[in-house]
């Protein structure tokens, strides 16, 4: 079983976690590639992939969190989220990245790059209805 010592950790980021793509294919989380997300969004009804560029990384007022500022999608909308520093994001062409690759490695055993301003992350949103 996955480690349970850190109850709040989402176990889908644990190295070895099995992920089902929208095509039905199963992959380990550490083996996912940009194309897997793109293809999954294509075959998912109602979801679309957005490019979310990290424009600022700040300390969060919430202790133990960091505040990430993104500009999202074609509209370049500003979105701010508070996450734990070990939370991985999938960066286009680079793979899993977090504000603290050391913590991600320690808590999830998931190899990560350092998330930096300018990185373009994969996010999803609802496809607009035409």
């Amino acid at each position: 079983a996955f480690a349970h010592s850190q109850g709040h950790l989402p176990s889908h980021f644990m190295k070895g976690a099995i992920i089902q793509l929208a095509t039905g294919e199963l992959k380990r989380v550490e083996d996912l590639q940009t194309q897997d997300f793109v293809r999954s969004a294509e075959v998912s009804g109602g979801l679309k992939i957005d490019s979310s560029t990290v424009v600022d990384i700040q300390e969060s007022p919430w202790q133990g969190f960091v505040m990430l500022h993104f500009v999202v999608g074609e509209q370049q909308s500003k979105v701010t989220i508070d996450v734990r520093p070990e939370h991985p994001f999938f960066v286009y062409g680079q793979g899993w990245s977090s504000c603290s690759p050391e913590r991600t490695a320690r808590l999830f055993s998931l190899p990560c790059h350092k998330l930096q301003v300018g990185d373009v992350c994969i996010s999803i949103s609802l496809q607009s209805l035409n």
Binding site: A1, F2, P10, S11, H12, F13, A17, I18, I19, Q20, L21, A22, L26, V29, L32, D36, F37, S40, S44, L47, D50, S52, F70, V72, G73, Q75, S77, K78, V79, I81, F89, F90, C121, I122, S123, I124, S125, L126
Partner: peptide
Amino acid sequence: NVEPRSVAVFPWHSLVPFLAPSQPD
């Protein structure tokens, strides 16, 4: 000896943030 264990399968979209842009004023 490897003990059998249940394996969870997670959907791909649980891995990426849902960033819904707020509506412009």
